[in-house]
């Protein structure tokens, strides 16, 4: 263990811990923009600078290893002045369109600008302007809002192993780019959206469906493969407007394209909405009572004539444990056969 002092608090942390991690472990807040706890540190944004006794200049806490006997101060007037300067410079080249930005309420930059009272008027000058949009159907890439923190590049490489994007160009013209600046053609896991600290990356299908006011968030389980990722459905007026996953879940907040973007089927106009009985070639809409009485009557007649084993039931891996339990109980106890199976083999 390493023992160090942060803001007059003596703390101990394991070997190979950075000053930022040490502070986080003990609930000491240091503002960050480019750092993400699940990605390697890059030290790019300079928001996390701290004062370390014996070192004459401010140090980026995300890249400085904690050392025995280290004395760290996370906030001084000079440090705060520098942080504010960093924000002023970033925001001087930011659209500042929070009114219409999809990320409002879920934006690290907005929160920091709010905390530091930065409005973006201090260094007014040339702004990057990228009117062209990526043509892919999943991910909106608004490069003008990008602060070049590199989190998306890192998550794509380190977590997803896809390397669909990287830094392109230099200086003021720097931007996150695909190969040959073509439209994004990747796994569309949307991990980049999940880690983006601004509105630069958003789901295309989220647009104007609702931001973070008047929405309900419900934790549930992804309806697709057997991995069982924990998801959070964001709902507005009985419609799912977004699917996200919390970083603290066992799946670490990571999802795939189906889990993150594959929820529109719920509101499909093709959903079945009434019980139907086939009359000759046509289906006729009936009440639940009619439909169930008719079906139960048919099953009873077949059972009477041919025995219970002339009836079979196929249940579904899409249904819950409770439904599957009750389905097989129905087949065994109410119908009287063990002819019950599901698609485990398919």
């Amino acid at each position: 263990m390493i023992r160090l002092t942060i803001n007059d608090r003596e703390i101990s942390v394991p070997e190979n811990t950075t000053v930022l991690e040490a502070a986080r472990m003990h609930g000491i807040g240091i503002p960050t923009l480019c750092n993400h706890p699940k990605l390697t540190a890059s030290g790019g944004c300079r928001m996390c600078i701290v004062e370390i006794t014996g070192i004459p200049r401010p140090m980026t806490s995300c890249t400085t290893p904690a050392a025995d006997g280290m004395v760290v101060i996370t906030s001084t007037p000079e440090i705060e002045e520098l942080r504010k300067l960093v924000l002023e410079l970033i925001i001087s080249d930011h659209p500042n369109d929070c009114m219409t930005c999809e990320a409002t309420g879920d934006c690290d930059l907005q929160e920091l600008a709010y905390a530091y009272g930065v409005q973006g008027v201090e260094y007014a000058g040339e702004k990057r302007f990228y009117p062209e949009r990526d043509g892919n159907p999943f991910i909106e890439r608004d490069l003008a809002k990008c602060i070049l923190c590199g989190r998306c590049v890192k998550v794509c490489n380190e977590v997803q192993g896809v390397d669909a994007i990287d830094f392109g160009y230099r200086g003021f013209k720097s931007k996150i780019s695909t190969s040959y600046e073509e439209d994004l053609d990747c796994e569309f896991c949307g991990q980049c959206i999940a880690v983006c600290p601004t509105g630069a990356l958003r789901g295309k299908q989220w647009a104007r469906k609702g931001r973070y006011r008047d929405i309900e968030q419900v934790d549930t389980i992804c309806p697709y493969c057997g991995t069982g990722c924990n998801i959070t459905a964001q709902v507005k007026q009985n419609e799912i407007i977004r699917i996200t996953s919390k970083p603290g879940t066992w799946n670490e907040g990571w999802l795939c394209v189906k889990g993150r973007f594959g929820y529109q089927f719920v509101n499909s106009p093709e959903r079945l909405t009434k019980p139907l009985i086939r009359r000759d070639v046509q289906f006729e809409a009936v009440t639940w009572d009619e439909a169930v009485a008719y079906a139960a009557g048919k099953l009873q007649a077949i059972r009477k004539k041919h025995g219970a084993d002339a009836i079979g039931g196929l249940s579904s891996a899409r249904c819950t444990n409770e439904e599957n339990y009750l389905f097989q109980k129905f087949m065994r106890a109410a119908v009287g056969t063990n002819n019950v199976d599901h698609c485990a083999r398919l």
Binding site: H306, A310, G312, G313, S315, M331
Partner: peptide
């Protein structure tokens, strides 16, 4: 003779 299919 009869089959009841739930969600398949």
């Amino acid at each position: 003779k009869a089959l009841y299919i739930m969600g398949e």
